[in-house]
Amino acid sequence: MTRPPLRHRIITASLLTVAALYFLVPVYWLAVSATKSSADLFGTFGLWFSDHPHPLAYLGAVLAHDHGIYARWFANSLFYAGTGAVGATGLSAAAGYALAKFPFRGREAVFHVVLAGVLVPGTALALPLYFLFSAMGLANTYAAVLIPSMVSPFGVYLCRIYAAAAVPDALLEAARIDGAGEARIFAGLGLRLMTPALVTVFLFQFVHIWTNYFLPLVMLSDSDLYPVPLGLTTWTGYADRQPVLYQYTVGGALLSVVPLMVLMTVLQRYWRTGLTEGSVKA
């Protein structure tokens, strides 16, 4: 195999380095700033530690502030993002598999409607969703954030495309000949073969829900139901009167990054290869 020219490798390495710095420097700034007091946040160099860093003490203060409200926000975010991502992944897998493997009248029309849903920004739907949930008596409840989070048009699109390419019709037909029902085929074969796509949908939806600010802002008025982004914003709003909230906000933002880093580390191996190699002879 011929190696690319040296200048191409240098350009590629340089671009990747710039991209890595673009994504990692904000995380580094958070890690450094979480060790500082509120005064040091504004009185010291932003990319280096203060003379007396106290990371554990400051993070402990974040968790203890206002009777541990941040821990509740963190648990709310885990509930919204975890449950919503699992639900969205399951619904997307079922819908995408059905659109890919079961021919029926109007299938393409349904798929085009799903594609149209991908193009609609979530902020355009927030107010109509609020009026709908308010009429149902579900506004300012966990369901007001959780139910919309379980719908992912992009997930349906991705699962349909992946199922069409990665789930061989011959394998499904062989399972039917062996007497397997459609539900068993979907659970035993379809979901296994679609694992890389399902992990992608789960991660995208988890990150989307975890970082979602506008939907909880519209739906929720009880601070006990807030997720982390909305809770940290309320702290920022009071920081002019309580400067210590600047430090708490930075510490809370650092803690909120941890679940995303753990998920990316644990689940990235599912992207390296598909699970269909060798399932059907060419």
Rank of each mutant, 00 (worst) to 15 (best):
A239H: 13
D40S: 13
G179W: 08
H52F: 08
V156N: 01
Y162K: 03
L267T: 07
P227A: 05
T211W: 06
L99S: 02
P121W: 09
H208C: 11
A31E: 00
H52V: 14
A187K: 05
A165F: 03
D240V: 04
R241A: 10
T200S: 14
N140D: 15
L203Y: 03
I10N: 00
M150Q: 09
L129W: 04
P121D: 02
G188T: 01
L254D: 04
P227G: 15
L255T: 01
F23Y: 11
P148T: 03
R272E: 12
A139D: 13
G122K: 08
R192S: 06
L129V: 03
V250K: 00
I209D: 07
T249D: 04
S92E: 05
A166D: 03
L78Y: 02
N140A: 07
L260K: 04
V32R: 00
D224Q: 04
A282Y: 06
D178L: 06
P5H: 15
A93V: 10
A31S: 03
G274T: 12
G231E: 09
A164I: 05
F45L: 12
A282W: 10
T89S: 06
Y142K: 14
I10T: 13
A180Y: 09
S50W: 05
R176W: 13
M194T: 02
V250W: 00
G46Y: 07
F186G: 01
Y142L: 10
L99K: 01
Y270W: 13
V167Q: 07
A180T: 02
P128F: 11
W48M: 11
G43L: 08
D40I: 09
A85N: 06
